[in-house]
Design a protein around this nucleic acid. Structure first.
Lengths: 345, 345
DNA sequence: AATTAGCACTCCATCTTATTGAGTGCTAAC
DNA sequence: GTTAGCACTCAATAAGATGGAGTGCTAATT
């Protein structure tokens, strides 16, 4: 059996209607909905075929049909129109904040949650390689030194170093010189115990203070930056009866509290099809690879800050999410974001 | 009518039982539970009195009784035993992280949520006055200057400043000198447009670059630090039937996504009674002043990092929360925290 | 050969109606 | 003052009864 034009139209009608109502869709509804002018009986026959083909499902004998994962997939891959959306208003707000990337991303998450009524999450940019550009030790007061480290992606780290005894200016200069000559240009991944040990040796005569400074600087450099994850609208999940069952909702909402979990979600491998030109991916039901999300869908998109520096945005909702709108909004948002970051660069 | 010894005992029994079960408590249950050896009939009479006094409530005619807000309040104020709790294990984990206060606080939130099964929130320390200790402008590369600002509470701010044309070393030195002499020791609240204007004037000959540097430094100083709020276990709310009604749950959980709201909650005025010696406050039902929390209770505690620098910890659960355990845990945790921060200081 | 009307059948959702049982208040006895 | 006894109330649960949306099948129509 083949999917002819008419079956496709009917499938589309079933899905569209279901997306709106969340209720199983019957033949009579479709008969009225479409421009096909077919009687319910005919529709029934076609729907029976569509079920046999695996695109729709009957929750129970005398109910209408709802889309299967396979049905959604077909819909997402072939039946969506490109649409413009209302991202414009966000633009200027973002422009203003563009300095603080974390603010921008938080705002993006909020905006998306508010506009789509789904749960959203945004991961901060991951820098692929980080080289030391510049290190500076400064004496703040008698008890504290301040280490400021600039990486080549212009990320700044700083770390107070508590010291027992005051350090004289000469020593600070010497330390700065040594640290810079040794570490500059090194990838932070290359900075290990051996390098630190070597550093200490090079500084022939060295006090305990110097030791600890070098140690702290080394540690600061190596330390994992924590996952920057911004979420918003997690509670939107509760708006959809099919997800708001208490245990399931608790699982999903719980996951939204754990940055690591979110990070994993956003790290899902890309599916073959690329919708539009942007890196927008859709995961339906089991495709999310997460048991507790088997009744959800997730749409992800990738934004780029500069070559090799990117992060992801994800939107989680029920399978009957308004893919059209979500993808449209994401598309539009992505191009705005890329613009903003490009300017800034 | 007075609250005699026996009435108190019965009230206590009602509350204790209700805390465990969450179900209205009947006279027969109490009759068996207490060591009073009274028949259900007698208990009934006493309970009738207790209801008249406003300490307990009958949800409907033929149900048992549940504590009223007034009943809980009496219980919290007078009937709790001090108890030791299992905070010890947390200690060393915290010690290790003590450097990064935000990590510590996040961990505290998680620990409390996991241990109490309620929703928890922690606000980062608020510094009452912030004076500039030290400013340093450094030239990072041809396109960027880096401003590092240390406040007297040892909070470090830094800000990249993009510049059009390279700045020579001499100018940087001059800038540093000027900024430090003018701003050091000033409270950030005192740094307004006028001060910045004066700064510019003092620097007789000044290029546009210098202008922008001063502007950026000023802005960075004045900018509100964002609210540091850490939450955990919000979804625990769903575990309590009396709160997991969809709309109510959505409201509470939604609030947990908004830092401002949390911040307001934690800023509630203190109630008269102080439980134990620490600043532990209990807000029951309407006392939270938040409509959507009228079926919740909140316990807050204050931790101190140094003189005048403190933050708050809050635990939100159903009215029938295990006050005994929560307060015990908080008490113990607070003293641990205060210790840790003191050492670190 | 495709479409449609008609009809019997299924099954969920909803409403109605018992039934149960926990709990109370009251009265009279202890 | 305490308690046993009893009638009464009311939520929660269970057990039918009803209705309606929807299907699948068959036979008639185009």
């Amino acid at each position: 059996m083949e999917l002819d034009e008419r079956k496709l139209k009917i499938l589309q009608a079933v899905i569209r209607t279901y997306l709106e109502t969340g209720e199983p869709v019957g033949s009579r509804t479709i008969s009225k909905y479409t421009d096909l002018n077919l009687s319910p009986a005919t529709i029934r026959n076609e729907m029976s075929d569509l079920e046999e083909l695996g695109y729709i499902i009957q929750p129970h004998t005398s109910a209408g049909r709802i889309p299967s994962d396979k049905g959604y997939r077909l819909y997402v891959d072939t039946m969506l129109d490109a649409k413009e959306s209302e991202v414009q208003n966000l633009r200027e707000e973002l422009e203003e904040k563009a300095g603080r990337i974390d603010d921008v991303l938080q705002k993006v998450a909020k905006f998306l949650a508010a506009n789509t009524n789904y749960a959203t999450m945004v991961s901060g940019p991951r820098y692929q390689s980080k080289r030391v550009k510049f290190i500076q030790i400064t004496s703040v007061d008698e008890e504290n030194l301040l280490a400021v480290i600039v990486l080549d992606n212009n990320v700044v780290k700083n770390q107070m170093i508590r010291i027992e005894e005051p350090v004289n200016q000469e020593m600070v200069v010497k330390l700065n010189f040594l640290l810079n000559t040794t570490l500059n240009g090194l990838d932070v991944l290359e900075i290990n115990l051996a390098v630190i040990q070597k550093l200490k040796e090079q500084l022939g005569e060295h006090t305990q203070v110097v030791d600890s400074v070098i140690e702290v600087v080394g540690k600061t450099l190596v330390e994992e930056d924590d996952l920057a994850i911004y979420t918003s609208g997690a509670t939107n999940i509760l708006k959809y009866p099919e997800l708001s069952d208490k245990t399931r909702a608790a699982e999903i909402l719980g996951a939204f509290e754990e940055k690591e979990i979110i990070h994993n979600w956003l790290g899902l491998p890309e599916k073959g099809k690329n919708n539009e030109s942007r890196d927008i991916q859709v995961y339906i039901g089991d495709e999310t690879q997460v048991e507790s999300m088997k009744d959800c869908s997730m749409v992800t998109a990738t934004y780029h800050i500069q070559e090799g520096v990117y992060g992801k945005i994800g939107i989680v909702g029920p399978k009957r999410m308004d893919y059209d709108k979500v993808i449209g909004t994401l598309n539009s948002l992505m191009s705005q974001l890329d613009d903003i970051f490009k300017e800034k660069k």
